[in-house]
Structure formats: structure tokens, C-alpha cells
Design a protein around this nucleic acid. Structure first.
Lengths: 231, 231
DNA sequence: ACAAAAGTGTTACGTGTACACCCATGA
DNA sequence: TCATGGGTGTACACGTAACACTTTTGT
């Protein structure tokens, strides 16, 4: 059909997608990693990933991987960067589209995770990973920090109902520094993107902390009004 | 050598890289585009790009493309995003790693550009492009705007020696709005990343405007001191 | 009553923003 | 001398950052 096309004579290669999966529990950011079960680098720690097939979108491949491992259909994930060094994979030429994902620890299917031999590591205790996965994690963390300042993605790491002390602790974990609870409250509440619930969480104190949930309608309205969100 | 490897049975595909090339002249942001010379979509307007070969990094491929078209060895470019929809290319499965590049119009080799049939279009007059290239341009512009606020990449679009009125006009073009010259000067000069030269540019006024150049040592020091650069 | 975490208000300071005039020069 | 663009300073508003005490309640 095509007289002169642009494909013939060019090289084909494998395309993979790898997921940097973050979670949050016990006031710590965690990373989900796996012992690799195939050569090359069998046995080494690795991010979870998969090859992209001919008939699926790159993003669908990431979604498939995340669903396989967590059992959750809707997980927040976003493209981080593509790693395309010619020598990045010692086996055969393969580029990887890295995605970072934020999941609510507790909501995913523990069995599924354990079946894959996965472990949650505290971010500062992650062992060396195979290939260029260490670099991916560093880049994802940088991106998470950047992004969390301008967009309320932090909520993806918390249960649907969360308390302000939890939220503060999350941001402290992301930025690795103490925040002033008064100023933090003032700022986040002034944005009008949190809905206060009647219910209290008494698991951490006698007094109990009110639950809030994220109000995405108000957030949308805030964005539409041209507001420059920042935490 | 490997008993069970992870490659066999998986799909291979073409990997391309496409470049969104921005320039700045006559107080306007410009985009460099090309009439496509191969099927599919022969004749349609297109970004410049190329397939990635088996033995080159994805980024090297972008560099190669940019050098071919501009004749310049050192051009600022950065990965934008990877476009990996299964149906994005009507010919054969192909994903594209998009890169955006900033070049100094005037420094590149005009003959090379013309030989390829390239044109500089004002951003708001760009004709429809083939495949998903329109989306790439929109995304690149969003990224350029974001990035220019936090990193001094704007200088990549100006000659080495430039005047403050030129710089203001560049930022006005990027953000599509008037800026207050007094406030802009105050801010940019307070960062100490510009070196004032003795020489004046008299091409736009009788009085003449002082030339400045970007001081990358001071900029590095500024970053190392943990400063949160913002324009 | 006391321990432990949740919640609240004020002030000082720096940064961003709005705004109008003088300067230098070539024609 | 005048027209043109280049360059400067100040006052006010706002947001950020620093800081300490009261409240609630289970034990």
C-alpha cells in the first residue's frame, strides 16, 4: 500500500515499563520492590515492571502491572521518564518507560503482594537495585517532592479518611523535615479542599483527631479559578 | 548462557524520538516544523524526529537529529514525555520519546534548515501536525512555561549577550502577558546570575541597552546554597 | 489529677506588586 | 528640542514563619 515507508531498515527493540511504587505507613515513606525471577540479574532486587505488548498502550501496561501486584484497579500513577541508554540492559536492547505510583498501604491485596515476594522498604533502607532502577527511584523521589508542592497528590498515599496530624506527618516524611502544625493547618484549610467529618480517630490520642477527606470538586474549582496551588 | 531469560516471546517495536524545537525572534516564540517526506502521512507537517537505532542511546538519537537539522553540536534539550498509545502510528507500532529543544535562532545553519524544507512558525499560527505531534507541542509548551519559572532555561533561547529588554520580552512571549519591567529587573538582578557588560545594544534605541550575559557559576552556587529559584 | 496528643491566634518580617518619572541619545 | 526606548525607587498588601498555651479525655 505504501510505496516508500519509513519503517523498513530500522531497528526494533523491547519496550518495558517499570513502576516505582510508593506507600506510606508508620510515618514513613516506603518503596515496594521485588526479587527478580528471570535472567539477567535473577535474584537481584528490582522494581516491578513488564514488557509492553504490541497491542497495548504503554500506560495500559503500567496499569496492568500495578493491578497484578496490588489487586487494585485504580491506582494513581504518572509517567516519570524514559530510560533509554543503549547499555542499560545487559541482555538485549530494551528501553524502559518508568512510572511512579502512589498507593494506599492497607487497601491493596496483601496476598497478591506476598505471592510475588514483594517487600516494602523504608526509603532510606532500600537495598541496591538492578540495572538503572536505583536512578529511577532517586528521580521518582525528586519528582514526588516537586509534585507534592504544587498538586495535592499526597492524598493518594493516605486512606480516604485521614486526620490532619496524619497529613502533616506525610508531608514531613516527603520533605524529611519538621513542619509547624499551626502554619500547615492554616494553609491547607484555607485552600478549602478538605471536608471535615464528624468522626474522630481516637487511635493515637485520648482526645481524638477529626477525620477529613479530600474534596476534589473544590480542588477542581480552585484550579479553574486560576489559583496557583502550593504547599 | 541464560537458561531462562525474560525476552523470548515478547514483542519488539520501533522506538522514535521527536523533537519540539523552540526558538525566539522578533519578540515571538517560534516552532520549527517540517513537511513529512515519508509514508505514512507524507506531506503533512511534522516535528523532526528519527528512529532510535539498536546501538545508540535515546538521548543520543535526539542529539543526532538536532545536529543534523541545525548544524549545532550543543543544543539544549530535555526529555518531555513518551508517547506510547498503541494506535498512535498508523503504520506500525512505534512509540516516541519526545524531547523539547531550545535553540538560538541565528546561530544555527540556515542552509541545513532550508535544505530540509523546515519552517519557523509563530506558536499561535502553527498548522495542524501529523500523528500526535499537536499534543506534543501543547505538552512541551506547558512544560516550557513551568520550567522557565524555576530554572533559567530561557537563556538558551537568547544570544549569549542579551539585553534586559530582550529578556523581558522573552518572558512575556513565554507567559503571554505583560510583565512590569521594574519588578522584573529587580528580581532577576537580585539573583546575581547576570553579568553586566560594558557594551550596549543600540539597535533598538538611541540610548542603548546594556548587554548582559548569564553567569552559570553564580547560578550553580545559588542552587548549591539551597535557593529556590523562581521568576 | 495527670499524661498525651489535638487544636488554636498573634506578631514580625520579607517578598511581591502596583505605580510614575527622569535619563541618554540620535535625528 | 523632541521623540524613543532604557533605566530607577517607593509605598502598600499579602503571605510566610516564628512562637506558647489551652482543650479534651482515658487512665
Amino acid at each position: 500500500m505504501q510505496e516508500l515507508d519509513c519503517y523498513s531498515g530500522n531497528d526494533m527493540m523491547y519496550v518495558a515499563t517499570d513502576c516505582i511504587v510508593f506507600g506510606f505507613s508508620s510515618d514513613e515513606l516506603k518503596l515496594l520492590i521485588f526479587p527478580r525471577r528471570v535472567e539477567p540479574n535473577k535474584g537481584a532486587w528490582s522494581l516491578i515492571g513488564s514488557f509492553v505488548t504490541l497491542d497495548e498502550d504503554v500506560d495500559s501496561a503500567a496499569q496492568r502491572v500495578l493491578e497484578q501486584i496490588t489487586g487494585l484497579e485504580h491506582v494513581f500513577f504518572e509517567q516519570l521518564k524514559t530510560y533509554g541508554a543503549a547499555d542499560r540492559d545487559s541482555g538485549y536492547r530494551c528501553i524502559s518507560v518508568a512510572q511512579y505510583a502512589l498507593i494506599r498501604i492497607g487497601e491493596y491485596d496483601r496476598e497478591l503482594v506476598e505471592k510475588h515476594g514483594a517487600y516494602w522498604y523504608k526509603l532510606d533502607e532500600v537495598p541496591p537495585l538492578c540495572l538503572d532502577h536505583d536512578q529511577m527511584v532517586r528521580d521518582a523521589l525528586t519528582e514526588l517532592r516537586r509534585k507534592a508542592r504544587y498538586q495535592p497528590i499526597g492524598f493518594e498515599l493516605l486512606p480516604e479518611k485521614f486526620t490532619l496530624p496524619q497529613l502533616i506527618s506525610l508531608y514531613e516524611a516527603i520533605y524529611q523535615k519538621k513542619l509547624d502544625p499551626r502554619n500547615f493547618r492554616k494553609k491547607i484549610l484555607s485552600l478549602n479542599v478538605l471536608t471535615k467529618l464528624e468522626e474522630k480517630d481516637k487511635s493515637n490520642s485520648k482526645k481524638g483527631a477529626y477525620f477529613y477527606k479530600f474534596n476534589s470538586e473544590n480542588y477542581k474549582r480552585l484550579l479553574e479559578s486560576g489559583y496557583h496551588f502550593e504547599l
